[in-house]
């Protein structure tokens, strides 16, 4: 008995090793389950450049966002007891808040945009991915990406409320209204209703410093690169509202930027990009690979279900085997499926 066990375990160990080798090869080559081709930015895609060093924390964007999208004021539970309905103090984006300004704090918080003993503001809302996970996971096409502007929109009439967009979004952006009996998913849709009227997204419209800057993604990318290339401290004319929109800008010294434009490559690229004075991970902007996880997931699905060939072939084989064995079974012995009803 013991011998047998040893043999079994030896076999098991052998199988583990063999499988390890078998698994290692394709994983390294990533050939079989390679991600599907990454999606590309529509040429006329609109986006936003958020410059954290320009943000003054006035929350005008938060307030304008609520107004433009008809969202109610919100308080964290700890404050709701005494200021419910009188003051908007959302802790994070939620079912009732599409945009929020949060703060990074360290030590004495003496200076803005400094990692040690400093603080920094960061705006949080949908980044409008080039290759969005939310669209990839949505079973009913409730999330869509506009083919021209690239804005990721949500259609509550299609939505079944499964919340996989919340689950799968690398930035935790879509938010379900858990406190409503008939809740829906809320997310920033870049004020596409205002854009349709030729207006700017509310947050970019009101931003007093141009920290939230609207524009074509291409132009914004160039603007961001100009800022990154400029010497910190030199005076720079910062545009406000829309890049190239003709509004008066303002002159201010160039901030001490981190040499990284967040959103250029993250998760396959996003249409909202961030320039920050402190490392982005300190501002709750996660470290992400250059490809979208949607591409990984869809690559797998497309490999396994390409033209439904593999499932159909499997089905054919299964039916054949099942038929054969039900025949054998009929011949060899009793089976309840073949047995004549006892009560008849």
């Amino acid at each position: 008995m013991d011998l047998e066990r040893r043999r079994f375990l030896r076999g098991a160990a052998g199988a583990v090793t063999a499988a390890a080798a078998a698994v290692a090869a394709p994983v390294n080559e990533a050939a079989a389950f390679g991600p599907r081709e990454p999606k590309t930015l529509p040429p006329k895609a609109v986006g936003m450049l958020y410059d954290s060093t320009l943000c003054i924390g006035c929350k005008a964007c938060v307030s304008a966002c609520k107004q433009a999208n008809g969202m109610p004021a919100e308080q964290p539970a700890s404050l709701a007891a005494w200021n419910e309905g009188t003051w908007d103090a959302a802790e994070d984006i939620s079912g009732k808040t599409l945009n929020v300004i949060r703060v990074y704090q360290n030590g004495t918080m003496a200076e803005k945009d400094r990692e040690q003993d400093g603080y920094a503001f960061v705006k949080r809302h949908c980044l409008h991915c080039v290759d969005p996970s939310c669209i990839s996971v949505c079973p009913v096409s409730a999330m869509r990406k506009d083919p021209v502007t690239g804005i990721v929109t949500h259609n509550p009439d299609a939505c079944i409320g499964c919340r996989y967009c919340v689950y799968g979004c690398p930035f935790n952006v879509p938010q379900y209204q858990f406190d409503e009996p008939f809740g829906q998913i809320s997310k920033c849709q870049f004020c596409n209703h205002l854009q349709a009227e030729g207006k700017l997204p509310a947050c970019c419209d009101v931003c007093p410093t141009g920290a939230s800057l609207f524009g074509l993604v291409e132009d914004l990318q160039a603007e961001a690169e100009r800022r990154l290339a400029a010497q910190p401290g030199t005076l720079y004319e910062f545009p406000r509202g829309k890049l190239g929109g003709g509004r008066p800008g303002h002159e201010a010294p160039i901030g001490h930027y981190q040499p990284h434009l967040y959103g250029e490559k993250e998760a396959g690229g996003t249409q909202v990009r961030y320039l920050t004075g402190v490392p982005h991970e300190k501002l709750g902007l996660p470290e992400l690979p250059d490809h979208s996880y949607a591409a990984v997931s869809e690559g797998m699905q497309h490999t396994l279900y390409k033209g439904m060939i593999a499932p159909l072939a499997l089905f054919g084989g299964l039916v054949f085997l099942a038929r054969r064995s039900s025949k054998t079974y009929r011949d060899e012995g009793p089976a309840h499926i073949d047995e004549e009803d006892s009560s008849s």
Partner: peptide, 16 residues
């Protein structure tokens, strides 16, 4: 534009 010193050190913002 002024540097807004109102919130330094900031207290009225949700932390990241």
């Amino acid at each position: 534009l002024a540097d807004v010193k109102t919130f330094s050190p900031p207290a009225a913002f949700p932390a990241v």
